[in-house]
């Protein structure tokens, strides 16, 4: 799966994770742009067309989880979600290094995804769900009468700003690492980049393929 091919490239993402990422990214951009046109006074005056903006905002928001849900049909994508979900020992080491502002790759061991990416993935998934829930409360007034519309709007507004800043961070990280972007765009990265920034990734993949089926070889050491 993640074996280097002839010219030393490593396959990082297949077509499904890349398509899911791209579709989600576009939906998020549309959702945020229309939100700005509804919410920021000067932009609202420039653009107007409130009903159209609201409709595009609602539908792009409601569709945000759709690429991920469709992606679940692919076993490769499900495997990536599993990797994002689970924290290994070295992820805690990565977080400690991040807290002490150590930037060298040696101080920040990572599997296919680093600890920051794992936390980000979980956080943004939860945030999108909260936005959808509060958004639906505003869309369909009186859906849950015991939650006031004002409360829903309050949470929606504050979380919208938080998401904006977190996304800016996400984009800045990608901007700072061209090869990470290359991996998301083409699906392949160089072996040296993988070894440097995701030092435990290829070893783990190797161990996975060697030890399969896992039940048959329970105590096999996975270190090289």
């Amino acid at each position: 799966m993640a074996q280097p091919d002839r010219d030393g490239r490593v396959r990082r993402f297949g077509p499904v994770p890349r398509t899911v990422h791209r579709a989600t990214g576009w939906l998020m951009m549309i959702c945020l742009t229309t939100a700005a046109c509804l919410y920021l006074g000067p932009l609202a005056q420039l653009v107007g067309r409130r009903h159209l903006m609201a409709m595009v905002h609602e539908w792009s928001g409601i569709l945000l989880p759709a690429p991920l849900l469709l992606g679940l049909l692919s076993s490769e994508f499900r495997a990536d979600l599993r990797r994002l979900n689970r924290f290994a020992e070295y992820d805690r080491q990565w977080l400690r290094a991040a807290r002490r502002r150590l930037t060298s790759p040696q101080a920040r061991p990572a599997g296919k995804f680093n600890a920051g990416q794992k936390l980000y993935a979980g956080w943004i998934a939860g945030a999108v769900l909260v936005m959808m829930f509060t958004g639906l409360l505003m869309w369909f007034m009186g859906l849950l009468p015991f939650i006031s519309r004002t409360s829903a709007i309050f949470v929606h507004d504050i979380l919208a700003w938080t998401i904006t800043f977190v996304l800016i961070g996400h984009i800045r990280r990608a901007y700072a690492d061209p090869e990470a972007r290359l991996g998301m765009r083409t699906g392949y990265v160089s072996r040296s980049w993988a070894d440097r920034h995701h030092s435990r990734w290829l070893g783990e993949e190797h161990a996975d393929t060697e030890s399969a089926p896992p039940a048959a070889t329970p105590s096999r050491p996975a270190v090289e």
Partner: peptide, 9 residues
């Protein structure tokens, strides 16, 4: 391995 760790995500 990552697959065994705590479900932090």
């Amino acid at each position: 391995r990552s697959a065994d760790g705590a479900p932090v995500g």
